[in-house]
Design a protein around this nucleic acid. Sequence first.
RNA 1: GAGCUCGUAGCUCAGCAGGUAGAGCAACGCCCUUUUAAGGCGUGGGUCCUGGGUUCGAAUCCCAGCGAGCUCACCA
Length: 554
Amino acid sequence: MRRTKLAEIEKLGQAAYPNQFSASHTIPEVRTQWDAATGEALEAERTTVTVAGRIMAIRAQGKAGFATLQQNGQRLQIYVRLDAVGEQGFALYKLLDLGDHIGVSGYLFRTRTGELTVHVETLTFLAKAMLALPEKFHGLADVELRYRQRYVDLFTNLDSREVFVKRAKTLRALREFFDSRGYLEVETPMMQQIAGGAAARPFITHHNALDQDLYLRIAPELYLKRLVVGGLDRVYEINRNFRNEGVSTQHNPEFTMLEFYQAYANYKDLIALTKDLLKFVAEQVNGTTKTVFNDVEIDFAHIEELTMREAIIKWWPKEAGNTASMIMFESSEALQQALLAALHNLPEAEPSADTKGDVASETSRDGVIIDPAGPTYVETRRHPRTAMVFTAAGGHLEDGVPVGKVIAELFEAIAEPHLIQPTIIYEFPTAISPLSKQKPDDPDWVERFEIYCGGFELGNAFSELNDPVEQKKRFEQQLAERERGDDEAHQMDEDYVRALAYGLPPTGGEGIGVDRLVMLLTGSRSIRDVILFPLMRSQGNRDQGPGISDEVQG
RNA sequence: GAGCUCGUAGCUCAGCAGGUAGAGCAACGCCCUUUUAAGGCGUGGGUCCUGGGUUCGAAUCCCAGCGAGCUCACCA
């Protein structure tokens, strides 16, 4: 059908796939320059423009007609009439389909309804859309198709396009921020012989000529610190990490990570830097420090700072009474006591028929409804989740799990869901921080912080461990974990230990999930909405949507 | 990996007390020289995700599979 039209277009003397078209303006340029011009002014000027674009709407009316062209996410109406473009030109107009690319030349005017319009004098065919476009009003709504056929999503759903424009702005702002502070942008290997720098399962690939397995990197961390050893005191890298794990609204197997390292800085310096960074990027991208995520307004100009311990106490469940205090963090026994007291305070649960079978109410987090606006629980009559959290924590302590690890678990269960506004949580237990430096006055805690926002983790930073002897020891501990079957435990990296042995200055390092940052800045609930081509399950030979074969091969 | 929901025309959707599929947009034909979700008249268009089963009869009910979304788990 469209093939025959293309043949007819060629008969009109138009190339089916011309090699170039010289426009005088882009559509956004025309809009910028003449959006404010009145009809009278346009008539007086009689400005002729030559523009190109994709036809997104077409309205024919006998011997005249309109069409809407789109270019770079902006639209401009054109008006084509028989007596202006001639028989050939009008014949071409009538053969056009939605989605075709054309170029037009003509003068600007305003229609009766006041819309800026090109009064076309010459019409040039540029390329055919062989497949039908999605419906003009709803656009492409099927989420799966939007991800799999992003090219259609981008020109039909301009909101989607805007997300990726903002993503590019985010990256530009990040680079500007670090460049202006004397950081050097570097690129370190993404194919590594040892996948290190994080606890995650890697993808494995193979180099044929060397006959050697390689890992796609899970983090650039260890290479970046080697560079600091080498005297590149301030480095940053923005690039992909790959982790062989499940997907969710917050995880894609390949994701973009910003990591930066600064010699002679510690985690306190990085806290200050992170605050400046988030504020700067938000302003560059959105013109304001505020953004709306999940219907909640988030403001990057006000970033709260809490220690992990303070956060646990702040969001200690109300129904557990006044049972939390700083003392409980001092020993396993103290924490046990606090947990027991809290459990004792919990009101009796309602009959189990109500709680057990009520799987559907999981969304309300098992009876605890979270108010995203602030640190308040709206209590309902059930607290099974709270009880479970306390019971599990107590059990772990009895099993001899390090108190630091249990404290971190409590934090994740009790406090993390409340961290909607950007919040820096600092001082982490040593037990869960193998690469961080301990606090000089308190070896159970390390100089580390994470930044949370929108209910998830956005970044992770610490004063880097630079003692090669201690580092080697920690690698050996990880090896022992590996022996026990933990395939996420770190491998020994002798070369990294050697690098440290040459002397890593006191250094602060941080990683920020760029995709998640873009999610916050664009109000996107799913990471797939900010990744152009998110990983989708293969569909094998199953056809998805319209194919070209029918049109091309007939 | 588990639970819930979904899969019907190119797109957005309806149809599901079981009786051989429908609307709008898009497409095709005709009318219309300032319309804009243009309008009017007419026409064509389907592997109802796939495969089984129940039934005289399945888009509809049942089972299995494939794909997706969300939630949870895992995981930074």
